[in-house]
């Protein structure tokens, strides 16, 4: 039998081994009590029983704001600064699927330089989880979009490798591992089925209600593992040069569908329809693919309790 079992008592040593592969990050909690992925200086900071971090791991691949071009002495040059090796430990299946979706967007031709470099230096270590009331994933699914996956059982973790790097990790940690039965194969793959694009024009009364209560705070898309719309802006410098940046953008903002002299999504209802369409039906070339991974963040962070998925359920009869 293969050595694939890690006893809980050896987790800290295992984490130390992971540091050989890059800067170690994992789920922690901030002073104000917010769960987030951050650097693990001390294994004691690790919050393995976390439900979800406020911002998904996309922040490591697509920073909120990033310099993409520099302009100096007459020409533009690559502005992206480069990346170091990073090991992200303790990622739930939904977030792994989120990264797999972003990969399809940013690693497709023409490849996005910044994303591709950061992605190639990112080692992903998944972990099984317990869903809560906000989650809407299919329970029991396990994402294979990672290098190594840890299935938590009573006294430890069953490890399964999903890449050459995962196998290298297992080899490096060999002396910490024990023989154990291989993890039971679990179904993997997309969690939610794509929706019918025409649903965005449905007569469902929730459309109007959502449009009137949405505060356009942008939290749902900021916190979504697969929202990646970005704005591009350029700032001159005094030396005659300039910097072009890209920054997370949001389809719920009025400026998103604007052109000079017109707005193709002038109302919040149009913008909610756009969001539904992108999230659950997909755009070229990912048409027909839902990008919702069921992490539950949008529902948890929405100040007015909007859950777009309710639009796909038949309207409830009003109580009389």
């Amino acid at each position: 039998m293969e050595k694939t079992f890690l006893k809980t008592s050896r987790l800290n040593q295992f984490l130390e081994t992971l540091r050989l592969f890059g800067e170690l990050h994992g789920p922690t909690v901030s002073e104000s009590g917010v769960h987030r992925f951050s650097q693990l200086h001390d294994p004691a900071e690790l919050q393995l029983d976390y439900r979800r971090t406020q911002i998904p791991p996309k922040k490591y691949l697509l920073p909120f704001r990033e310099e993409i071009l520099h302009y100096a002495s007459g020409s533009y040059s690559e502005g992206y600064a480069g990346a170091g090796d990073l090991v992200l430990f303790g990622v739930h299946s939904c977030d792994l699927e989120g990264i797999a979706y972003l990969d399809r967007v940013f690693l497709a031709e023409p490849v996005d330089t910044g994303y591709a470099t950061r992605r190639s230096r990112l080692t992903l270590i998944g972990i099984s989880c317990e869903p809560d009331d906000f989650c809407f994933c299919t329970e029991g699914m396990e994402s294979s979009s990672c290098d190594l996956f840890l299935d938590a059982v009573a006294d430890g973790f069953r490890l399964s490798s999903h890449s050459a790097r995962g196998t290298a990790l297992l080899t490096a940690a060999e002396q910490l591992l024990e023989e154990g039965p291989p993890p039971a194969p679990r179904p993997s793959g997309p969690r939610l089925l794509p929706q019918d694009p025409q649903l965005r024009f449905s007569e469902h009364p929730l459309w109007r209600r959502f449009a009137s209560t949405c505060v356009s705070c942008g939290a749902c898309s900021v916190c979504c593992p697969t929202c990646y719309c970005f704005d591009v802006r350029e700032y001159p410098s005094l030396s005659g040069g300039g910097t072009r940046i890209r920054e997370w953008d949001n389809c719920l903002f009025a400026s998103h569908g604007e052109v000079a002299g017109a707005n193709f999504r002038p109302d919040r209802l149009d913008r909610l329809r756009y969001r539904f369409l992108h999230k659950y039906c997909g755009f070229t070339p990912l048409q027909g693919i839902t990008s919702c991974v069921g992490c539950g963040r949008c529902k948890e962070v929405c100040p007015v309790g909007i859950d777009l998925r309710e639009l796909t359920a038949p309207p409830e009869r009003e109580e009389r």
Partner: peptide, 24 residues
């Protein structure tokens, strides 16, 4: 000074607040 104006941007405080992982 460069003969232009800075590009427009418009988002609520929540957008940056959430992105910085502050407590809501």
């Amino acid at each position: 000074a460069a003969g232009t104006l800075p590009p427009a941007r418009s988002y609520p405080v929540c957008t940056e607040c959430r992105s910085h992982e502050n407590l809501c």
